[in-house]
Design a binder for these strands. Structure first.
Lengths: 236, 236
DNA sequence: ACATGTGAACTGCTTCACAGCG
DNA sequence: CGCTGTGAAGCAGTTCACATGT
């Protein structure tokens, strides 16, 4: 969608090229923190849009999202100019642009690997569909679970996973398997050509550079809390 | 727990003492990223300790944790010097120090608020107890759930929550309630004096500065993935 | 000779401050 | 005049490189 970087293929005078390189709004490299905030802005926009607001400002978004107005404007500036000076932003327009930027225009097919407690909870989670995510497959290797229903779909044998991924059945996988099996499943998914994985397995995973992996590690979050509790001095 | 600073007890020349003062392991202000990595290092140490390793190096930890040896040493240096030059680190010693730093020496009483799908899954999650966390209470406001068993404890009415927190029954709360109720519960917990909250509610929450809040937002994580999928160029 | 511990350099995110435009 | 958009300054986290100690 965004061009990686073809500015140097055509004619390009040495030094100037380097300069021009940094200006255009292609995805140079957007910080993860920025993307997170875009999600936050969007959820507020949807909220106030539902309440009938038609206009908002970087100040509003900052207050609601726990950041600063300069940060909001800077975040948005990576992708274009969506506001009107002196007035602010059109709520419908901005939310639409953000949905587009975040890739929520298309609908994404998601599979959940692991039908244990967490996998089951996720497969029933209604919040997904509200935002372009559709769980169209659940996998487990436990014969006792295979064939059972889970959130509207039937649990399939994990041995089918690679074939299904290769067939293009999913764009995103959510891992809810024990730490021991996680890397094996990841490798399977990668072999099948999947490019986006969200893992709940409490272990460090490795993927090739062209695959995006996000990990949610409960233990790590809790340890962040106990660290703060244990070392609370004058800090937060 | 940490020695504040006994470097000045022995001989210590005036100015030098002031200088040395800023080095010692008090918690100046440790970056969240550092704490996360400490968790990772610890989990590897426990793994290789179980396999019988007695010594390791910053290089080993870096390779396993997906970072650099300099980063490992820098992270540890905020808390002291745990290694031996030319040799590396003692596995048992370092893991013990990390447990201490992360506050895993004590055992923490945790309550889960919200006995829906996610709350229930969490209350059954065995991974907690492995690491000093004990779920000793589960709360919900739905009469149909109150009194039922959930992961070894009985679901209590949320109306008891503030009293129980005030009584010191918990040090940590995990929120698994709908976005609409989340801030209300947070306020209740804060009023009761709780200082550490882990929220799974997909909404922005506000807490006083002396309360630590971590939020895990599924929607946000998924949007991070779709952003990457949509804007994949030469970037990761 | 080897691996730690750490100031110094560097990179990149955030904040500032103001020009630009409705 | 108000609020956006954005270079420039500031700051925080990471990486470098080497002195230090075994």
């Amino acid at each position: 969608m965004f061009q990686p970087d073809d500015c140097c293929s055509p004619v390009c005078t040495s030094l100037t090229c380097e300069e021009i390189h940094k200006l255009p709004p292609d995805v140079k490299r957007i910080a993860e923190s920025t993307v997170r905030r875009l999600s936050i802005y969007l959820s507020f926009l949807e909220e106030i849009e539902a309440r009938g607001a038609v206009t908002t400002s970087s100040d509003d978004l900052a207050r609601l999202g726990g950041t600063t107005s300069a940060q909001v404007r800077k975040d948005l500036s990576f992708f274009g100019s969506f506001g009107k000076r002196g007035l602010g932003y059109s709520v419908p327009e901005l939310s639409s642009r953000l949905r587009e930027i975040l890739g929520l225009g298309s609908q994404w097919k998601v599979c959940i690997v692991g039908a244990g407690k967490i996998g089951a909870a996720l497969s029933h989670y209604a919040g997904f569909a509200e935002r372009s995510f559709f769980v169209t497959g659940v996998y487990d290797s436990d014969p006792a679970k295979i064939g059972k229903a889970a959130g509207g779909v039937t649990v399939r044998d994990t041995s089918h996973l690679e074939r299904d991924v290769t067939a293009g059945d999913y764009q995103i996988a959510i891992l809810a398997v024990p730490a021991e099996n996680a890397q094996l499943i990841v490798d399977t998914l990668v072999r099948g050509g999947l490019k986006a994985i969200l893992s709940f397995a409490p272990t460090q995973l490795t993927v090739p550079a062209d695959v995006t992996l996000r990990t949610v590690n409960m233990a790590m979050e809790l340890e962040g809390l106990t660290f703060a509790l244990t070392n609370r001095g004058t800090d937060r």
